[in-house]
Simulated scan of single mutants.
Amino acid sequence: MGFDELKNKAKDLLGQHGDKVDEGVDRAGQFADERTGGKHTEHIDSAEEKAKEGLRKFGEQ
């Protein structure tokens, strides 16, 4: 399987399961927030939103 095939498959999966991807990003952010003792919540929340936005754009291409 070539790179283009993998990229297209990832786009299809993002389109079909975008809600699950968002949940995964949220869980990763929550984990990071817990591990840092809540010291960087603001930065983690910002990174979550940017990741979700980037993944949505990738899925729409």
Rank of each mutant, 00 (worst) to 15 (best):
K50N: 10
G15N: 07
K57N: 11
V21K: 04
R56T: 07
V21D: 01
E49P: 08
Q61P: 09
K11G: 01
G37P: 13
A10E: 00
M1D: 01
S46P: 02
D26A: 13
D26K: 15
K20S: 06
L14S: 02
G54Q: 10
G24Q: 06
I44L: 15
Q30T: 15
H17L: 06
K57T: 06
K7P: 00
G37C: 09
V21S: 03
D4C: 03
D26Y: 12
F3W: 06
A47P: 01
D45T: 12
D45I: 02
R35T: 12
E42S: 14
E60Y: 08
D12V: 08
E42L: 15
K20M: 07
F3D: 02
K50W: 04
S46K: 14
H43M: 09
K57D: 00
Q61M: 14
K39N: 07
A28E: 01
G18F: 14
F3A: 05
H40V: 05
I44F: 06
E60R: 14
H17M: 07
E42D: 13
T41R: 15
A32K: 15
E34D: 14
L14K: 05
T41E: 02
K52W: 03
T36M: 11
A28I: 13
G59H: 08
Q30E: 15
Q61H: 07
R27D: 10
F58H: 02
A47Y: 08
D33E: 12
D12N: 05
K11S: 10
G18S: 11
L55W: 02
T41M: 04
K11W: 10
A28T: 11
H40C: 05
G24S: 07
D12T: 02
Q30L: 12
F3C: 05
I44C: 05
